[in-house]
Design a protein around this nucleic acid. Structure first.
Length: 488
RNA sequence: CGGGGCGUGGCGCAGUCCGGUAGCGCACUUGGCUGGGGGUCAAGUGGUCGCAGGUUCAAAUCCUGUCGCCCCGACCA
């Protein structure tokens, strides 16, 4: 492994790839666009998963599991939905291999399937085919189900964590008796996503909804959280869809109301994926590597013992016992690095991996009843007593969590601009960041701007105020106030 | 789908133009001295050169075919 990272400011993309590899998060699988998530990277996802799993269970949702394989015909049921996914579906056509004297092993032509099977790009279709069986009466509603699963989208261009052919996510699928209830669910989940991003990943987000062009195929309305990455580009970090009655109609899911009338069910679906890991990297990382928010860091404190012989090692080990006890008691995730690499090597290594706090303990410290405590977020390094260290660490972790958030928030604010003319708009987009402006609501304007500048409408913020605005492009009165940016 | 690049020890590469039996850095192993910001010295391990065919006394190198991956673009969450 060579030293250091390419500087973040000169080549963000190379910096990102290097961090994923050097922090030991993931690597490419043998099949194009696939990703092996390595233990350290997976722990990060696992922590995110655990947090969100608790959130949705606390709000009445339960987990279930639906199959990976979906009959090809299901996808055809909802017209817009097909359009959205048809081009990137993996299709299973055969069920057997057989030995071949010349080529080693071949697909057995005899095993061709009558009806081909697709690998889920998302599960709306199979879930609504099942919900049809489960729903007859208003008494069966609402259904509030989530599943943790993998999905496959055969992408042209892939990047580890941000867009891979197969990725892990959660997909929530709910069924409701009324449009109001479905709308409330959609927004409640959006709020949970905001909390997940801001309170746990320390990543400020904008909440809003998508334009027609950008929304999920099959949804009436797509809400999203959008975050700003370190290169000032936007990343969609989570989506919550109000599906209206589209899937109910496609799969003929009706129920009897209290008043004994018949009605189609209202639906929502929502998801966040392993892309969040990429988001954390790009939102907080620096030239030394990852910087992890303590709440999701696999290791919150790394202890680097320093000793030149067995006797000193024993001494340090003993000296650390109260620290261990304190960490265990307080539920702090820690790791002691006793490998025989040099201390300097370990400092760099654990900084690359983004561990929020480092505690150095050597013979000198044992003698003076001290330790060196270093912060990853700002590089501060202090000599403290062991007592002080034990006392201050929980608070420091909180400080770091908040510090990362406020740093990212400041960055987002510094790079968000309001513009009034198209010239200003183009100049600002060129510099990067979010641009807030008026839009006349027409797809023509949206397309024209996209072709002209490569920027897209990231969202129409929930707190928009289009009343006094005119469209940046056409000069007509604005229908919406929108956030424009170049996006991942 | 279009353009470009690359397949040689675990990783990164040189060697290919001009054919002569494979080399460098990192990593790895063992030992010594070291250890508070990527230590150092010494001795080692490891490769049918992506695959298949051809030319040749001889192929990593030349020819033909084939497979795969990466990057940029187009498309798309």
């Amino acid at each position: 492994m060579s030293k250091g990272l390419p500087p973040k400011d000169s080549d963000f993309s190379a910096w990102y790839n290097a961090i994923v590899s050097k922090a030991d998060l993931a690597e490419h699988g043998p099949v194009k666009g696939t990703m092996v998530i390595k233990p350290y990277g997976f722990q990060l996802w696992d922590n995110i998963k655990e947090i969100f799993d608790k959130m949705i269970k606390a709000t009445g949702h339960t987990n279930a599991y639906f199959p990976l394989f979906i009959p090809k015909s299901y996808l055809a049921q909802e017209a817009e939905h097909v359009d959205g996914f048809a081009k990137e579906c993996a299709v299973v056509t055969h069920t057997r291999l057989k030995a071949d004297p010349e080529k080693g092993i071949i697909v057995d032509p005899e095993s061709k399937l009558e009806e081909e099977v697709i690998v889920r790009p998302t599960s709306e279709t199979i879930i609504w085919a099942m919900y049809k069986k489960w729903i007859q009466s208003y008494r069966d509603l609402p259904i509030l189900i989530n599943q943790w699963a993998n999905v496959v989208r055969w992408e042209m261009r892939t990047r580890l964590f941000l867009r891979t052919s197969e990725f892990l996510w959660q997909e929530g699928h709910t069924a409701h008796a009324t449009a109001e209830e479905a709308q409330k669910e959609t927004l409640d989940i959006l709020e949970l996503y905001r909390q997940l991003a801001e309170d746990y990943l320390a990543m400020p987000v904008l909440t809003g909804f998508k334009s027609e062009a950008e929304k999920f195929a099959g949804a009436n309305k797509t809400y999203c959280i959008e975050a700003m990455m370190g290169d000032k580009k936007a990343l969609q970090a989570g989506t919550s869809h109000n599906l209206g009655q589209n899937f109910a109609k496609a799969f003929d899911v009706r129920f009897q109301t209290k008043e004994n009338t018949e009605a189609f069910v209202y639906a929502t679906s929502w998801g966040v994926s392993t892309r969040l890991v990429g988001a954390v990297i790009m939102a907080h990382g620096d030239d030394k590597g990852l910087r992890l928010p303590p709440k999701i860091a696999p290791i919150q404190v790394v202890i680097i013992p320093i000793a030149r012989d067995e006797a000193q090692a024993e001494m340090v080990k003993k000296y650390l016992q109260p620290v261990r006890d304190s960490f265990e008691e307080k539920g702090i995730r820690y790791h002691e690095d006793w490998t025989d690499r040099s201390p300097g090597f370990k400092f760099n290594e654990w900084e690359m991996k983004g561990v929020p706090l480092r505690l150095e303990v050597g013979p000198r410290d044992v003698e003076n009843n001290k330790a060196v405590l270093a912060r990853r977020d700002n590089g501060d390094k202090n000599i403290v007593s062991l007592e002080e260290a034990k006392e201050s660490i929980p608070n420091l972790l909180e400080e770091i969590q908040e510090g990362l958030f406020s740093q990212a928030l400041q960055f987002q604010k510094d790079n968000t601009h309001t513009v009034e003319t198209y010239d200003e708009f183009k100049a600002q987009i060129k510099k990067g960041g979010f641009v807030r402006c008026g839009w006349d609501g027409s797809p023509e304007t949206e397309t024209a701007i996209k072709n002209d500048t490569k920027a897209t409408i990231r969202c129409i913020p929930l707190d928009e105020n289009p009343l006094e605005l005119t469209c940046i492009y056409s000069g007509k009165p604005a229908l919406h106030e929108v956030i424009y940016a170049k996006a991942y």
